[in-house]
């Protein structure tokens, strides 16, 4: 039983205020997104329309704490078929950002900032890689972690620590 009186009417506005979140309120529940969602095809409990609905009703905690929101593969299928231009892939990014702020991001997502701050990339480039590249006549690749650490506001040492964690 959901009591609308206990829901958070501001939640949908909060999501809409995030970059990419503006379309959420336009949804008229036609279900085209759910029809095309490849994740829904493999995960019974995953349904884009359901996430939108819960958001619109103002089930803030339920949505932000749900592990389901991290299952989106960002394939943009829902976004392409939506007749109301909800742009659900982007909406869900907005929701995930809010969830991350609220501390709900899964571990794999949390590591990324550390990796970027450390290497400027997801995969480290060592001499080994550059040797291999050189064998094939490819130019060497440099790591630019410092730039990323500066943008992310993470000190390089903290980045290393994060990576190890």
């Amino acid at each position: 039983m959901i009591s609308l009186n206990d829901c958070d009417p501001g939640f949908k506005f909060e999501v809409a205020a995030e970059p990419g979140g503006a379309g959420i309120k336009a949804c008229f529940a036609c279900a085209a997104c759910s029809a095309r969602c490849p994740v829904a095809g493999h995960r019974e409990e995953y349904d884009p329309r359901r996430i939108i609905r819960l958001t619109l009703l103002g089930r803030r905690e339920e949505v932000l704490s749900s592990p389901l929101i991290w299952l989106c593969s960002a394939c943009y299928s829902c976004q392409e078929v939506c007749p109301q231009q909800v742009r659900f892939t982007e909406v869900l990014t907005a929701i995930k950002n809010l969830a991350a702020k609220a501390g709900y991001a899964p571990p794999s997502a949390k590591q990324i900032a550390g990796l970027l701050a450390g290497h400027g990339r997801l995969l480290a480039v060592t001499e080994f890689e550059n040797e291999k590249r050189a064998e094939l006549g490819l130019p060497a690749v440099e790591e630019r972690g410092a730039d990323y650490a500066a943008i992310l506001g993470i000190a390089p040492e903290a980045a290393e620590a994060g990576e190890e964690a």
């Binding site: 039983m1 959901i2 009591s3 609308l4 009186n5 529940a29 359901r50 609905r53 819960l54 009703l57």
Partner: peptide, 12 residues
């Protein structure tokens, strides 16, 4: 009943 969530909803 919310048809999308298949859940009871109430409003005062």
């Amino acid at each position: 009943r919310d048809l999308l969530l298949d859940e009871e909803v109430q409003l005062r």
